[in-house]
């Protein structure tokens, strides 16, 4: 009984060796990406600053999470669906008890979770919002024009992670080891492609926001 072809073997493969492979590729790729950014650095700036960089930079890291009122008015669908699925994804990722246990197992830190039916509801909403973003991407002239194969790949993997999680929790795929294995596999695919696709923004967006806030902040503008 060592075959990969049976559900439990598949689950244990995804929970075991594949998880380590995925995490290793993720760590390697992400640190490479971060090193690429941070080591490039910035040239010295001789212009007399109007204000410091750190505080405005950190403020922008936080404030860019929500749009300015004008942008919200001009692109409500884009903003709302984007926010909903990001929040939903984070709630499901960080506040679902089994995930908290996983994080505790990995890093030794944990926090309180939310009741499962609530996370389940959030996940369902997230799936709907994700589907809406795809429809929007396929129809909005700007997003259609911007989209590349990568965008659709990333959407698919993200959607699969949430979908398989939803199916596994609700036990809609049987047997359960297969369902859980598919969910873990999707999450591993997500981790593997993360450093090489736009998913990097999960980490680099904060660096980008800081640079933006720092650059504007130096000139006396809270960006």
């Amino acid at each position: 009984m060592t075959a990969l072809t049976d559900p439990m073997g598949f689950l244990l493969f995804t929970k075991g060796p594949l998880f380590n492979i995925a995490i290793a590729i993720f760590a390697l790729g992400l640190l490479a990406r971060l090193a690429e950014i941070l080591l490039l650095g910035r040239r010295p700036n001789f212009a007399e600053p109007r204000a410091g960089e750190w505080l405005p930079g950190l403020r922008t890291v936080v404030t860019r999470t929500l749009p300015d009122p004008g942008t919200f008015k001009r692109a409500p669908f884009n903003v709302v669906t984007g926010l909903i699925w990001h929040i939903g994804f984070l709630v499901a990722l960080l506040l679902f008890i089994p995930h908290i246990e996983l994080i505790k197992g990995l890093f030794g830190v944990s926090w309180p979770g939310l009741p499962n039916p609530f996370v389940d509801l959030v996940t369902a909403v997230t799936l709907v919002a994700l589907a809406a973003t795809l429809v929007h991407r396929l129809n909005h002239p700007v997003k259609k024009r911007l989209s590349t194969v990568e965008d659709y790949l990333v959407w698919t993997v993200t959607f699969l992670v949430v979908l398989t999680g939803y199916l596994a929790y609700n036990r809609l795929i049987n047997p359960y080891p297969l369902a859980l294995g598919l969910h873990i596999l999707s999450a591993e695919l997500f981790l593997i492609i993360l450093p090489f696709t736009k998913l990097t923004h999960i980490f680099t967006a904060f660096i980008a926001r800081w640079y933006n806030g720092a650059s504007f902040g130096r000139r006396g503008v809270q960006s």
Binding site: R33, I37, P67, T71, A75, N78, V79, G82, H140, V142, K143, L146, S147, T148, D151, K198, T200, H201, T204, A205, I207, A208, Y211
Partner: peptide
Amino acid sequence: AFFSSCVHCGI
């Protein structure tokens, strides 16, 4: 950092 972060949202 900027190019690494663009998600093609079109905003």
